[in-house]
Structure formats: C-alpha cells, structure tokens
Amino acid sequence: MISTYGMAAILIYLVCSPFVASILSGVDRVVTARMQGRRGPSVMQAWWDLLKLFGKESTSVNDIQKILVAAHCFFAVFSGAIFFGGGDLLLVFFSLTMAEVFLILAAYSVNAAYSEIGAQRELLQMMAYEPMLLLTSVGFYLSTGSFAVSDIIRTDIPLICKMPGFFIGLCFILVIKLRKSPFDLATSHHAHQEIIKGLTGDLSGRIYGVSELAELYEEILMLGMAGLFFITSDPVSIVWALIAVAVVMFAMSLIDNVFPRVKWELLLRYSWLVTFFAGGTNLMVLLLQAKGL
C-alpha cells in the first residue's frame, strides 16, 4: 500500500518537521527584522521558544481543552503523514479540516470572549481558504488523473505549467494558512492584541506548546503542497521545488511586512474572488482539455 519511499518520507516528516519549521520561522523573523532595519533574534529562537513551552507546567481552564488540543495536533500530523506518504490529496485536506475543527472547539470550550471571537475568526478564515484548497486538489486530479500524491509526482513536466491559476490561488491562501498579515485574523505571529490571538489566548504552558507543534507540522505540509507544483519524476526537480518554496516563503515575509491587517469582510471577499477567478478559469481550461478540445 505505502511504498518504502513513502514510509521513509513519513518518518522524515514526523521527526524533522518541528525542527525544520522552527528554523524556517527563525529565518523568517531575521528576514523580517532586516526589512524593518533591526537585527532580529537568533535563527534558533523559535526552536528554543518551543522547547521552553514544553518545560512549563500545563494549566487549563477545563477538562476538555487539553484533549481537544491533542486531537488537533494528532490530526494535523496525520494529514501531513498522508501527504508525504503519497496518499490521497482529498483525504489530506479533510483530515486537515478535522484538525482545525478540534482547535476551534478547544477555543469554544473555554467560554471566554477572546477565545470565542478567535474561534469565529478562525472559522471564517477556514471558510475563506477551503474552496481554494479543495479546488487545488481537483486541479491536480485533472492534470494527472489521480488524487494520490504518489501518482502526482510521477508527472513529466512540472505541474505549474498546467495549473498556474491554482498556484496563484494557493499562494493567496497560504498567507492565511501561514498566519501572515494581511490575513492573520485569528492567530497572528505578532501577538500584540487579544483579538487576533484569541484562538490560542486561553492555551498556556505545555498545552500551548502542543498547539504550536501542530502549527509547525501544518506549515511543512502547506509548503509541501506548494512544492508539489514543481516536482516531477526527475529527482533533480526536488531542488527546483525547494528553491520555489524558498521564494514563496520570502514572498510571504514581504507581504507580511508590507500590508496592514484587513477586516474579515475583505478577507472573505478577496479570497473567494481569487479562488473564483484564478482557480475557476484554470479549472475550465483543464476540463476542456480533458474533454479533448
């Protein structure tokens, strides 16, 4: 069912993701600092922060918070494992949705104003990015005839050539998924206001650490999805994919620094419009091709 390569990839994903993702976020912070004319923290800062969280006492507001956050983490890791194991893209997407649902429920369960606002905002963000994620999977299916990642990477030409519209759309919602301004409505990386950090506002200590860990895994998964546009059957393409992902990361930092945060109405409108036009047009083209026109 799963190939040896798949197993190895899952293992690497499980072991290395937290470290790699925290380094990436460290680099991101340095780049951001340089853009703002500051020196910035050490590249390792995010990693030390994570370790520190796990050294703390875990406190909670109620009985179910902890288990919901744990479920969130489990399903986030699970979806990444399906992806890197070469599984079905739709299943990845659904499992990721489930992970999000558990995090939102954890915030709801606290029954406090900021948490609940955060939960609603996160829900809204989900509503904003879900259509594009789903559509991207459809795009991969139409271009390669399969939803399975293991089949998709066997393509001869990089899929970016067939699905540029989807790539634009995906990058657009990556801003939301990677929690970057202007679309970081529910939990920003710049934790300076209660409302935009409400979702995790009532998580503390080790439990917060678990939610951070889940985010790191999710980040690697999202970057993997961006990389999927560049991978082909030729092993050298991995290098190209890594370069592409690095460019995407840099673009995200730039966007993060250039734009102020938008209101949720704008977020919803923009992301649906981009999904509709960029994703929709590309979808039409692919469907017409599939019909042999």
């Binding site: 429920l105 709801y108 829900l123 809204l124 259509p131």
Partner: peptide, 18 residues
C-alpha cells in the same frame, strides 16, 4: 462545502462552550 462547515462548526462550538 466551505460554508456548510461554517454553520455546523459554530453550532458544535455552542454545545461545547461551557
């Protein structure tokens, strides 16, 4: 399906909000 998820999960959230 995105909007479907929205209205169900916020309902679910109410049940869990203790």
């Amino acid at each position: 399906s995105a909007s479907t998820l929205f209205y169900w999960v916020k309902w679910l959230g109410k049940i869990f909000s203790v």
